[in-house]
């Protein structure tokens, strides 16, 4: 798998399109177990990201994703700003100076992103957070190489799997057992991130 700067820009724009499209569902999921602002925050944050990168010209994918990250960090007031912001900031460091990402370098970025989310959110696999999606996606990429379509399928399956889990982090953790039966909103937004990747990769490759 190879991702050009053009495809990587489309990724950021497609994430935005997906967040706008699923804004209400993200908020509904968050209303069930959190504070209900996830759809609003993601839609607003990625709209700002799209505004920032759409007309800018980048040779360096690292610089592009540094802009994505700093926009999320400064524009999103909830937990998703620092978490997604840190994820993309760490990935941007791994992608620095590249105008194209091969499977290995892309995977390094995802690995760094997961490390960033872990440090920032202090959560682990199975805590019913976005990491329940990001960690399996990373593991699969490390083992078999980056495959956008597989990543999207894994993300969908793992987001679904958060439904039966009890939340250990964030506001949802106050609900304890009552957090069961609802998909984690951060896991769902993460699923959308990898779905967006699969779509733009497919379009870029054809």
């Amino acid at each position: 798998m190879e991702l050009s700067a053009a495809v990587m820009k489309q990724w950021a724009l497609r994430i935005n399109a997906k967040m706008q499209e699923h804004k209400d569902k993200l908020s509904e999921l968050d209303q069930a177990i959190g504070d209900g602002d996830h759809g609003h925050n993601m839609a607003r944050g990625f709209q700002e990201v799209a505004n920032k990168v759409e007309d800018a010209s980048y040779d360096d994918i690292g610089a592009m994703y540094k802009d994505v990250a700093s926009t999320l960090i400064s524009k999103v007031g909830g937990a998703s700003g620092p978490l997604y912001g840190t994820a993309f900031l760490k990935a941007a460091n791994a992608w620095k100076g590249r105008d194209v990402l091969d499977s290995a370098v892309f995977t390094e970025g995802i690995e760094a992103a997961v490390g960033g989310i872990e440090t920032r959110g202090k959560a682990s696999l199975g805590d019913k957070t976005m990491l329940d999606v990001w960690i399996p996606v990373r593991d699969e990429m490390k083992e078999h190489g980056a495959d956008a379509e597989k990543a999207a399928k894994t993300a969908e399956k793992e987001a679904e799997a958060t439904i039966d889990r009890v939340a250990k982090k964030g506001r949802a953790s106050y609900l304890g057992e009552r957090s069961k039966g609802h998909m984690d909103p951060g896991a769902f937004s993460s699923q959308l991130v990898f779905e967006a990747l699969a779509e733009v990769y497919k379009e870029g490759a054809s």
Binding site: I73, G78, A79, G81, P82, L83, G85, T86, R120, G121, G170
Partner: peptide, 8 residues
């Protein structure tokens, strides 16, 4: 998440 932003 105020803590996350404070740490940042």
């Amino acid at each position: 998440s105020a803590l996350m932003n404070a740490e940042m």
